[in-house]
Amino acid sequence: MVTELNDIRLVVLDMAGTTVADGGLVEQAFGVAAGELGVEPGSADHAEKLDYVRATMGESKISVFRHLFGEESLAQRANAAFENAYGELVDGGRIAPIAGARETIEELRSGGRTVVLTTGFARVTQDAILAALGWQDLVPLTLCPADAGGRGRPYPDMVLEAFLRTRAADAVQQIAVLGDTSYDMLSGVRAGAGVVAGVLTGAHEEEALRAAGAGHVLGSVAELPALLGTSADPRGAGR
């Protein structure tokens, strides 16, 4: 961990549940995908699969479906159905920013920090969310699992990809990772991030976040600037 929180130069933020409120759309879209593969709503099989989806929030969705359905062709069918269903819900205006999220990102950037948005969704879904919120130009870089080798969370790949691409930090200890799931926390810990923080606006509760490595648990992303304080980045604002 870094000694000074204000030494953080790169902030890697999750989207759904952390900066974006989607009102349980993941579970709704999963229901569509499961039905596509013949999983009966209300069945024990459906309940077991939904429990796994909840437990692995934040993970690359294709990885989740590979675990649930095994055969690659079935996983790809489920994933396509999920992405289509989620995209339709997004297009229907079913998402919104977490209160204060945009202002937080703007404040962090104006203080000299680089902000990257990451997701477990496919690029097409991430882009749909960004477009729906008008966030296409809010940050200099957005990443999905395919942008970092395909593994997604809980692996550290997207955090490290942000580190390598932005060159905003001199060491991984100058990275802060913020998310709402255990997998977000694990990815930050495994990347060696100096700050790994959870928020209580999404999938997992404080106990699960801390068990996965959260050093801080915040009410929401809006509390992050106060945690980090004034940036010590000597390279200036607006990165």
Rank of each mutant, 00 (worst) to 15 (best):
G152E: 07
G134M: 06
A122T: 15
L37Y: 01
T56D: 03
E223C: 04
F69M: 08
R113G: 08
E72L: 12
A96H: 10
G35F: 00
H67Y: 14
G58T: 07
A81S: 12
G198S: 03
G120D: 13
S63K: 15
R153E: 06
G215T: 11
L133S: 06
T201E: 04
L218T: 01
D45H: 06
E59W: 14
A47G: 03
G120K: 11
R151S: 14
V64N: 14
L133K: 06
G87R: 15
S182Y: 02
F65Y: 14
A81G: 09
S63L: 14
T201V: 01
V53H: 10
R165L: 02
E27W: 08
T104S: 05
H46F: 15
R66I: 06
C144H: 15
P225I: 07
G112T: 05
A75W: 07
G42C: 09
T114R: 11
L186S: 08
D51C: 03
D233G: 05
E106M: 09
A226P: 02
A85H: 10
P97D: 08
A197W: 03
I98G: 00
A47L: 13
E36R: 14
F65S: 03
E36I: 02
I175V: 12
F65N: 03
G213M: 04
D91N: 12
D170N: 13
E71A: 15
K61H: 12
V26R: 05
S110Y: 01
L108N: 01
M185H: 03
R102Y: 00
A99P: 05
T119I: 11
M1K: 15
P225Y: 09
L13C: 08
G238A: 04
D180Q: 01
D170A: 15
G112L: 09
G236D: 02
K49Y: 10
Y155S: 12
A131Q: 14
Q76C: 01
L37R: 06
R190N: 13
L50P: 01
R235L: 12
A237L: 03
S182P: 13
E4I: 01
E59Q: 13
E48T: 14
G192L: 12
S231R: 09
T142M: 04
Q126D: 13
A85G: 12
L25T: 10
